[in-house]
Design a binder for these strands. Structure first.
Lengths: 105, 105
DNA sequence: GTCAAACTATGATGGCCGTCGTACTATGGG
DNA sequence: CCCATAGTACGACGGCCATCATAGTTTGAC
């Protein structure tokens, strides 16, 4: 298969698709880990609770929604959070997702 | 059944639950109509494309997630958008949801 | 009390999606 | 070339949820 994948343009971003991507806890965890790290992360270096093939599926959903960018380095695939594109397309959304909830006291 | 329903406290708001509520297009339409109107709306006065009993289900999901408040007036049930609570719990989220997407030119 | 209007409750149904297992491909090292 | 590592593709399965239809409840009008 091709080692290049489709990434949507900013103008193609779709709120429905973005929300469907973010509603899954595993996928939101990926986004949060990328946001917290501040740098790109290899697929295998995430802390996830699902099977590897399931993780691949989640990365694909995030990529096709425009939340992350993926590129290969050797056998590893690196993931980038598309902060600027997201902030431009849906201002406030990424922050709302990555901001930890206040403690429920 | 009781004519009073449960509404979560601000401290009980849960991001997962809120996103699950907002990912459905019908429910997001309800929120958007409330936001656009700027005043409370009766269940029957929304412009929805689903069966009435389905709409009831959606109102319940929104209410239990904390997105709307519901109260009876006669036989009608009025719906209020919980703007302040939402902005406090998840700043930016409501705006991201209700802001129309830029035209995909 | 009778009736209509507005909404709810319950059960059934169908489809979608998250999950896993296995097989596969690709890259790099020896 | 051989093998290990990293990730993907594909098929199967199970559960959840949006939807509808029908019956029920509550309120207000007459």
């Amino acid at each position: 298969m091709g080692r290049t994948s489709h990434h949507p343009e900013l103008s193609e971003f779709d709120l429905q698709q973005v929300l469907e991507a973010l509603v899954d806890p595993v996928r939101r965890s990926i986004v949060q880990q990328l946001d917290a790290a501040g740098h790109d992360i290899k697929c295998g270096d995430f802390d996830l609770s699902v099977h590897k093939s399931t993780a691949t599926h989640h990365f694909k959903v995030l990529r096709e929604a425009g939340l992350i960018r993926q590129y290969y380095v050797g056998t590893s695939r690196l993931n980038t959070l598309r902060r600027e594109d997201l902030d431009q397309a849906f201002p406030g959304l990424l922050t709302a997702i990555t901001t930890p909830q206040p403690a429920t006291h």
